[in-house]
Write a protein that binds this DNA or RNA. Structure first.
Lengths: 168, 168
DNA sequence: ATTCCTCTTGAGACTGAGTCTCAATTTCAG
DNA sequence: CTGAAATTGAGACTCAGTCTCAAGAGGAAT
């Protein structure tokens, strides 16, 4: 129940934020855009646009592919979601409204995404920017490799990677 | 002349390294793969696959698109090049053979790429991986923002950014 | 309510990077 | 020289994402 209420609260202020963002650009908060926002807020973790589209269709809240993509871009501009390019040819989104900043480790085998925060790294990063008189607007810090679960699998079956399709 | 010799030297050992990588997998160091390697080593900075393909065609060292892509992947696996996904739908490569590891700051205004290294960040990163029992294979650390030159320009002409096409 | 202007939508055509297929060719080992 | 295995290139294909454009709202002014 408290999770529900929290979600409602988030949805409320996320909606406000989206409305503000749109109206500042003479754009409208339409029913379709609200459906997309709602869909986004109920996703957990990282999801892609097609997955969201499919989810909306299954929930009888169908919105066209074009609208989903367009709205996701608005949401990203409004700072409600982040768009990641972990693998090539496949953007992943996560909603970040009301969430703290974090970076990512991504497993090359299974695609699992692990979030991490390290204040010292953040601080050093700022230092690097100061040294170069560079004004940071955002950063991407991703570590790619093999997660512990996949390492375990490899140990069990040493002639590994049935799906080692040789990319990234 | 010394630059030339250096390049030859690099090319030599890069070739060795590629041969080793390939032969360890029962693959062959073919003339086509050598052409791609040569093309890669003579590129400066960051380039994409199509650019390399075009360059090879113009130099009468034509190699098929498929071979270029396939070979770039081999080179990446052999640790001779790095594949970046700065923007979506567009991989960029840089050759890293004989170069030290570095990360990037990218100016949103002028596209300038500044390389940086920070050992403390690297160490902390390793620590994060250890904490999560994650085996790092590579990482991406990019800081996006405004370089000092562009900050100066902005100060002079405050109603800035003619090409602010609003994506990542 | 009506009008008008602008924004929005959806269907589907389109794009472009990258991959796959497969027959023909090359390479290497014996 | 021969056969097995790897390699190549042409072009078909895939797939995420974008674009187009006609039809459908929203809402401000009348």
């Amino acid at each position: 129940m408290s999770a529900e209420r929290r979600l409602e609260g988030e949805a409320g202020s996320a909606q406000e934020r989206l409305r503000d963002h749109l109206s500042a650009r003479n754009l409208r908060l339409t029913p379709e855009r609200l459906l997309v926002l709602e869909g986004v807020l109920t996703r957990e973790g990282h999801f892609d646009a097609e997955e969201l589209l499919e989810h909306l269709r299954r929930s009888n809240k169908s919105v066209s592919r074009a609208t989903v993509y367009r709205t996701l871009d608005h949401l990203a501009e409004a700072g409600l979601v982040k768009k990641h390019h972990f693998q090539e040819g496949h953007a992943l989104f996560e909603h970040v409204h009301g969430r703290d900043h974090h970076d990512h480790m991504v497993c090359d085998r299974c695609g699992r995404v692990i979030e991490f925060v390290n204040d010292k790294i953040e601080a050093l990063q700022e230092e690097v920017c100061r040294e170069h008189d560079f004004r940071e607007l955002r950063h991407v810090h991703q570590i790619f490799g093999i997660c512990s679960a996949c390492q375990a699998v490899e140990k069990r079956a040493p002639n590994a990677s049935p799906h080692h399709s040789g990319h990234a």
